[in-house]
Every structure is written in C-alpha cells, then in structure tokens.
Computed example of a mutant assay.
Amino acid sequence: MSMAFQYQEKKSFMHDVDPITKIVWMICISILVFIYETAIPQLVLFVITLATAFILARLSPKFVLRGIWIMLLFSIGFFILQVLFVPGRTQLFSLGPLRIYMESVDFATAITFRILTIFTTSLVFVATSDPRDIVISLTKQLKIPYRYAYSIFVALRFVPTLESEARVIEAAQTIRGVGKQKGLKNKVENIKRFSLPLLMGALRRVRITANTMEAKGYGAYSDRTYIRSIKISKKGIGFVALWMALTVYLIVLKFM
C-alpha cells in the first residue's frame, strides 16, 4: 500500500518535469491564493490543483484524500470557528444567540480552500519528485550548498519511514492486547505508549544517519559530483512559462 507524502514512481506529465519547474509552479499557486480573499477564486484554484493532481500527476483520488485528510479535518474545524466568530454585515440566518453573516461564510470558505490548495500542491510536488532529483536541482540549478539541500532529502526520506514504523508499532501493540482504548485517560496513555517508541526509533535512525555521513566524510568538500543529471525539458519550460504569465496577468488585473 502506498503511503502519503512519498514519491510515487510512475509516468505522468508532472513526473517528467524537473523539480525546479514544480517549485516555480508552487510559488505561482501560493502567490495567487494569497492575493485573493474571496471564496470563488480560492475554489477555482483548488479545483485547478486537484485537476493537476488527478490528470497531470495521475494521482488517485484515494491517495490525495489520504494525503490531505488531516488538513481537511483541521480546515472543517477552522471553517466552523470562522463562521461563528468572524463579524459581518449581511446576516444570513441565526442560531439562537449566534448570527451567521454572509461575509464570515465567504471569508471562512476562502481561508479553508486556501489551506487545502497549498497543502495539495505540496502533496503533488512530493509525490511526483524523486528526492534525489530535488537535491541535484537545488545544488546544480539553484546553487544551494549540497549540505543544506541534503537536509530536504533526509526529511522526505524520513517521513514515509516514520509512517511505516508507526504502523508497525500500532500493529504490534494491537497483537499484544494494548491497542486503542476508549476514554480520555486511556487515550492519553495510548498516545504516550505510541509516541515514545516512535520517538526512540526516530532518534536512533537520526544517530545512525549522522554516524554514516560522518564516516563517509560528507561535507568535507565544498562541492561534489553526481551520477544523475537533471535538465529542464521543453514541456517544463512551457508549463512554467504559462503559469508565470497567468500569475503576472492576474496580479496586474487584481491591482489595476
């Protein structure tokens, strides 16, 4: 079973373009979601992002939902709080002493879709970009020191590893009869019993990685060579040029 926020090796348009192109695409999306404050533009951007995930990246709806479900739950709670407590002028209806305004609903909807759009673009980037290609693109094309770029590679490698270890810990505790239990006190104990093995495993893995890098002399030289090479393709240039032109046009149209 594939895990969320892990590179998915397959053939698609987004898999074929280089990481720098996708970073520029993410920046364009981020700029657009922050210059608009109403619900309709945010909904359009979210639909475009989902279409990119489903069509251009060929990610399944199940995979995307598994990647954003936590943020989706957070966004729903955030939406309810914003609707209830953000003031407005045009009243839609009332719930006892609470008054629901059109402006608060529009603002809450816009913020909710903004969060989901940014999170979904990150999911598309991670799922379609080989961590090795990200490091090479950052060091060769953006001239970022490889020691800093490698930290991104480690983070992208550790996230799915920790997710896999979490599943193993949960399964082991369930087999031993100490699985999830109901009640507030039991939930606190469950979190403690689950988080400590995961934390210890993460610390052990970090120590092993650090010792390995030290033994191999990682960082001893200012530059290094790479077997793989990353080039910006014509389709990548066309894709990023389209998004940059669209972003500039919408910014000018917004503030004219």
Rank of each mutant, 00 (worst) to 15 (best):
A172C: 09
L45F: 15
G238H: 05
S222M: 03
T117S: 13
T90V: 03
K231H: 13
T225N: 15
K22P: 01
I31S: 10
T112D: 10
P61N: 05
R99H: 10
Q8S: 12
E163Y: 12
R176Y: 05
K182H: 06
F93C: 02
I35W: 15
E189V: 04
S75P: 00
V240H: 02
I48T: 10
I76D: 12
H15F: 01
E189K: 10
L253E: 14
Q6F: 01
P160R: 06
A166C: 08
T121I: 06
F78M: 11
L50Q: 06
Q8K: 11
Q6A: 10
F158H: 08
V248P: 05
F54C: 08
L253D: 14
A4D: 08
A215V: 01
L81W: 15
G88T: 00
E170L: 11
T109I: 07
S233M: 09
V154M: 12
I169M: 10
I20F: 11
Q6M: 08
K192L: 14
K235G: 05
T38L: 12
P41Q: 08
F54M: 07
Q6I: 00
V206N: 06
E163W: 10
D18F: 07
L203W: 00
V105I: 03
A53W: 04
L250R: 07
Q91A: 10
F54T: 06
G179I: 12
F194K: 03
P131L: 08
M200L: 15
A210P: 00
T174H: 04
P61Y: 01
F239M: 14
F113L: 12
D18W: 03
Y148A: 13
S151F: 12
L56D: 07
S222C: 02
K234F: 09
F46H: 08
I55W: 09
V159A: 14
F93P: 00
W69M: 06
V83A: 13
V64T: 03
R132W: 01
F107C: 02
P145N: 13
L250H: 12
D106E: 12
S195Q: 05
I251V: 14
T90D: 12
M256Q: 10
Y226G: 11
L95F: 09
Q181I: 04
A4R: 02
T90P: 00
L84N: 02
N190V: 03
S164H: 11
V188D: 03
I27K: 04
A241T: 15
T112R: 13
L43I: 13
T49H: 08
Y221I: 00
R114S: 05
S137Q: 09
A39W: 15
R66G: 14
S2I: 03
G236F: 09
S104V: 02
T128M: 05
L203C: 01
L253C: 03
L81I: 04
I80Y: 13
R99W: 02
D130S: 11
S30L: 13
F5G: 08
L246I: 03
A202D: 01
A127M: 05
R193W: 01
F54H: 04
K182C: 03
I232K: 07
A110K: 14
R207D: 15
L242V: 12
S137L: 05
T38H: 13
S151G: 09
T128I: 02
Q8P: 05
V44F: 15
